[in-house]
Structures are given as C-alpha cells and as structure tokens.
Lab assay of single mutants.
Amino acid sequence: ELELEEVDLYRMNSQDKLGLTVCYRTDDEDDIGIYISEIDPNSIAAKDGRIREGDRIIQINGIEVQNREEAVALLTSEENKNFSLLIARP
C-alpha cells in the first residue's frame, strides 16, 4: 500500500533549481516508475523538506509521468514557476 502525498514547490525565477535528480529503479524490470535519486541540499525541494530520496513521482502538474525524459522536461521547464508533484512512498 503506497502513501500518496502532493507537494507544491514554488520558485521565484526560472534560475532557481528544484534540485531533484530522477532515475529508474533498475532492479525490477516491471517497475517503470520514476524515482528521486538525489536532492540537492541547497535547493527548493531540500528547503521544503517533504520530498525524500526514494520517493516515486506519479504526476507533475497533473501530468502522469511515463518516463525519465518526460519528468526531466517537466521539472526543468522554464515556463513553470509552480510545481505540483504527486509522490508515492511505501
């Protein structure tokens, strides 16, 4: 049973970094989820404190993420200042 949490992050300008590194968990081929492998200690996500390494990203801004490229594109989008992440953890 996964616990879901919605985390809203806000950046003042497009130079601010959310600070999330995303990856696949390669140990299970059936698991195509996108996971947070690293959080930059000086980033918006780290200061917010709710997202943890190992969390799975389900949605970004209401869009279900299917692959790492999509997640990276959404997280690094210059147009977005508000990010709503739906994350899951066991």
Rank of each mutant, 00 (worst) to 15 (best):
N42I: 04
A73N: 11
I60D: 00
Y35V: 13
P90C: 04
D30Y: 13
E38Q: 07
I87K: 02
G54S: 04
Y35F: 15
L20S: 00
N82W: 07
E5T: 15
R89Y: 03
S43Y: 04
P90D: 05
I34A: 13
S43R: 03
N67K: 11
L75T: 03
R52C: 12
I34N: 13
Y10T: 14
L2P: 10
R50N: 04
T76H: 04
R68Q: 10
A71Y: 05
D48W: 01
T76A: 08
R56K: 15
E53T: 07
I44L: 11
R11M: 06
L2Y: 04
T76E: 11
V72F: 07
A45S: 10
L74I: 04
D31N: 09
I57Q: 00
N61I: 01
D40Y: 06
I57S: 00
D27I: 12
L4F: 14
R56A: 15
G54E: 06
A45E: 01
E38T: 10
M12C: 02
E38A: 08
I34T: 09
R68N: 08
M12L: 12
I87Y: 02
A46L: 02
A46V: 02
D8C: 04
V72N: 13
L75K: 00
R52N: 13
K17C: 13
V72I: 08
A46Y: 08
P90K: 08
V72T: 11
D31P: 07
N13I: 07
Q66S: 15
I87P: 01
S77I: 07
I39D: 01
T76I: 11
D40P: 06
E1K: 14
V65D: 06
C23T: 09
G49D: 13
R89S: 12
I32Q: 15
L2E: 11
A71L: 04
R11G: 15
L4G: 05
N42R: 14
D27Q: 11
I87L: 12
I60K: 01
R56N: 11
S84N: 11
R25M: 10
N13R: 08
L85A: 02
L18V: 07
D8N: 02
A46W: 11
K47H: 09
T21P: 02
S37W: 03
E6C: 05
E1W: 02
N82T: 12
Y35N: 13
E3H: 11
L4Q: 15
D28S: 12
R56Q: 09
G33Y: 13
I44H: 05
L86S: 14
E53D: 06
D31H: 12
V72P: 02
Y35L: 12
Y10Q: 11
I63P: 00
E3M: 13
E1R: 02
Q59V: 11
L75M: 08
D55C: 05
L20K: 00
Q15M: 11
K47Q: 11
E1P: 03
E5P: 02
G33D: 14
T76D: 08
V22F: 11
E1L: 08
S43D: 07
S77H: 09
S84C: 05
P41V: 10
I58L: 11
D27K: 04
N67H: 05
K47P: 02
I57G: 00
E78M: 07
D8G: 14
I44T: 07
D28F: 10
I36Q: 00
A45D: 01
D8P: 02
A73F: 06
K81S: 08
I57T: 01
T21V: 03
I51F: 12
T21H: 08
I58N: 14
G49C: 07
N67A: 07
P41R: 11
A88I: 02
S37N: 08
A88G: 15
E29R: 13
L86V: 15
D30R: 10
N82D: 07
R25Y: 15
E53Q: 08
E70R: 05
I60F: 03
D48Y: 02
V22N: 02
D55V: 03
S84A: 06
E5H: 12
K17R: 08
Y10E: 15
N82A: 07
E64R: 04
K81E: 14
E3D: 12
E3P: 05
T21F: 14
G54I: 00
T21Y: 13
L4A: 13
L2A: 08
E1S: 06
R25H: 14
G62E: 08
